[in-house]
């Protein structure tokens, strides 16, 4: 059975995965820039990490010359993202303890 025309527009090529990754990255970027809650900002940074990982894995799948290097990079990105989440949330907790707030606008200790 032939695929419908609307489906062919979304055919799974490298470009469609990269476009999806770009859209996800921009959603995460908007959230990281426009949100006030520090935990939401960390969640949006995780979304951006995931967007990059999708691009990496898509490169590994569709560019055979890369020989799975993209997947190796994705493993390292996941590692760094986990470390970043742990340290970031510890910082949020420490700031909450001294300031009684997790609003990013109250984190002005290092502003001059």
């Amino acid at each position: 059975m032939q695929a419908p025309v609307i489906m062919q527009a979304f055919a799974t090529t490298l470009e469609s995965y990269l476009l999806l990754s770009a859209v996800l990255f921009c959603i995460g970027l908007y959230g990281a820039l426009a949100k006030r809650n520090a935990v939401t900002i960390l969640m949006c940074i995780e979304l951006m990490f995931n967007a990059v990982n999708i691009a990496m894995v898509a490169f590994a799948r569709y560019l055979p010359a890369s020989n799975l290097t993209g997947q190796v990079f994705a493993v390292f990105i996941i590692t760094i993202a986990a470390a970043e989440a742990a340290v970031g949330l510890a910082i949020v907790l420490a700031v909450y303890r001294s300031r009684r707030s997790i609003s990013a606008e109250d984190f002005n200790l290092m502003k001059w």
Partner: peptide, 18 residues
């Protein structure tokens, strides 16, 4: 989960990057 005052400029920057 509130937004801050930079919503507009953040939207512009994100769409431009996209």
């Amino acid at each position: 989960n509130p937004g801050n005052r930079q919503k507009g400029i953040a939207g512009v920057v994100s769409l431009a990057l996209l």
